[in-house]
Amino acid sequence: MLDDRARMEAAKKEKVEQILAEFQLQEEDLKKVMRRMQKEMDRGLRLETHEEASVKMLPTYVRSTPEGSEVGDFLSLDLGGTNFRVMLVKVGEGEEGQWSVKTKHQMYSIPEDAMTGTAEMLFDYISECISDFLDKHQMKHKKLPLGFTFSFPVRHEDIDKGILLNWTKGFKASGAEGNNVVGLLRDAIKRRGDFEMDVVAMVNDTVATMISCYYEDHQCEVGMIVGTGCNACYMEEMQNVELVEGDEGRMCVNTEWGAFGDSGELDEFLLEYDRLVDESSANPGQQLYEKLIGGKYMGELVRLVLLRLVDENLLFHGEASEQLRTRGAFETRFVSQVESDTGDRKQIYNILSTLGLRPSTTDCDIVRRACESVSTRAAHMCSAGLAGVINRMRESRSEDVMRITVGVDGSVYKLHPSFKERFHASVRRLTPSCEITFIESEEGSGRGAALVSAVACKKACMLGQ
């Protein structure tokens, strides 16, 4: 009897593995994704193909990295998701002549009506938060230079001027797309009239992360975010950046690689679950690469896999709870928690219980395998993109072996128990001629924006502006 049951459990697990095998990517698959990513990057950089390229390769006008001589107080704003952060950054000489960066910050959550109302409502709310922060720190009387981390696709015309191309991540505030974001912020500050600010720089969160990590390690020339969304930036040779005049030196390019796949480059790798996630998203047909990796989508992918296993009578005796059938019910943090389970399955059992399920031991094991399959594919897909960037940098610099540091931020990278190990191992397999160091950014977005502002202020002083 026991043997029969054991055989049935083994057969069930084997069927589960057959279904989950769809998520496995072979090294040849990853090399294919990497080569296609490089081709799209090239198209994004070139003037004649930029418009139709899915990977936009947006110039950021960040050319210099901090040298350690900029000092002063800077205000930093960070808008990239449902939370908005205001930070005071003091850049100065530390002990023994070292450079020191001290920060104080406060988080504000953005109400739904500000995210989806008008641009005026959104930026009025942001300036209200700045006003509140300055009151708390008794700094209303000071006109501070301000660095703005704005983590949406922007076409820069200068370091302090950028046109919002399109909202992502659930934002829909009308009247912002096609307009200068810094102008919208300046107008809102003017409307309030109770404080003055000098907006000197606007950067993407990947750029802010790279600059913040450069402060720790001067070989950091790539910034990457794996959180709600997924994106990367890197220092490109100016001669390859056709959208900006000049051939000397390097400029940081914001790849906006989340949109890779929007022209069909990933079609052969998309599964039924991916198509369902895409169809029910706020932007169907867009940001397809990001939807395979980002935390906004990972939990939902797992939920759809679990429903398939229920329908195949391989999980929960073929019956799903009402909660499990509800879109968004299986949160991405559950994926991390399930994979963090120590082996007694308590954590998995508790999560499934909150979803109205009474799982068996085998159910718990199957749910864990589903989570591992989805998150491992995410790590491997992400590795193909980064390997594409790094191999490109090595080739354009004609280096036999390139040493490089990548600064990384984002909740999936930082909080998932195995993502970074799987990701690092896969990147290294795909970049055999590179020695890569990964560092995690601390308060990256805010500190990085302030350091970019410090560079901009120093330049302005040198130019006598």
Rank of each mutant, 00 (worst) to 15 (best):
M224R: 15
T362F: 14
L309Y: 10
R5Y: 06
E399S: 10
F152S: 01
L306Q: 09
T332Y: 00
D42I: 11
F152P: 01
G446A: 11
L184N: 01
S280D: 09
G162H: 00
I110Q: 01
T431V: 09
K420M: 11
R428K: 15
L47H: 08
G285V: 06
A53K: 08
Q239W: 13
A259Y: 03
R303N: 04
T103I: 02
A232V: 08
Q138H: 13
A11V: 13
L165W: 05
R358Q: 02
I19K: 10
E67V: 15
L292T: 12
A378N: 04
I211D: 04
L355T: 12
E177A: 00
R394Y: 12
R5D: 03
W167V: 03
R403N: 10
E28L: 11
D341S: 11
F316T: 12
D262F: 11
V222A: 01
K39C: 10
S418R: 13
G295H: 00
G183V: 03
K190H: 00
E435H: 12
G183I: 00
A114V: 04
L79F: 04
E95T: 09
I436Y: 10
D311R: 14
M107R: 06
L288D: 06
V222E: 01
V305D: 03
L20R: 08
V181S: 01
E442F: 15
G446E: 02
D160Y: 03
E300S: 05
A378E: 01
V33Q: 09
V200A: 01
P59W: 01
N166L: 02
M210W: 10
E237M: 10
F133V: 01
E221G: 14
V277E: 04
Y214I: 15
A114S: 12
A232S: 14
R345H: 13
C233R: 15
R394I: 09
R85I: 00
A173K: 01
H218Q: 07
L276N: 11
G294M: 06
Y214K: 09
K90W: 13
W99R: 15
M381P: 03
K459W: 14
T437Q: 13
F260H: 05
R447D: 02
R447T: 09
E120C: 10
F316W: 14
E112Q: 12
I189C: 02
M202Y: 01
T362H: 11
F84C: 01
S321M: 15
R345S: 10
T354S: 12
M197Y: 01
C434H: 02
P111M: 06
L184F: 01
H137S: 11
K414L: 15
A173C: 05
N391P: 02
A259I: 01
C213I: 10
H416W: 05
V374N: 07
G227M: 00
R7F: 09
M197A: 15
D78S: 01
T49V: 08
A450M: 01
A188C: 00
N83Q: 05
D4I: 08
A425R: 11
Q347Y: 12
H380F: 11
V244E: 01
I366N: 07
E290R: 04
L357F: 08
G94T: 10
D29I: 06
K136E: 11
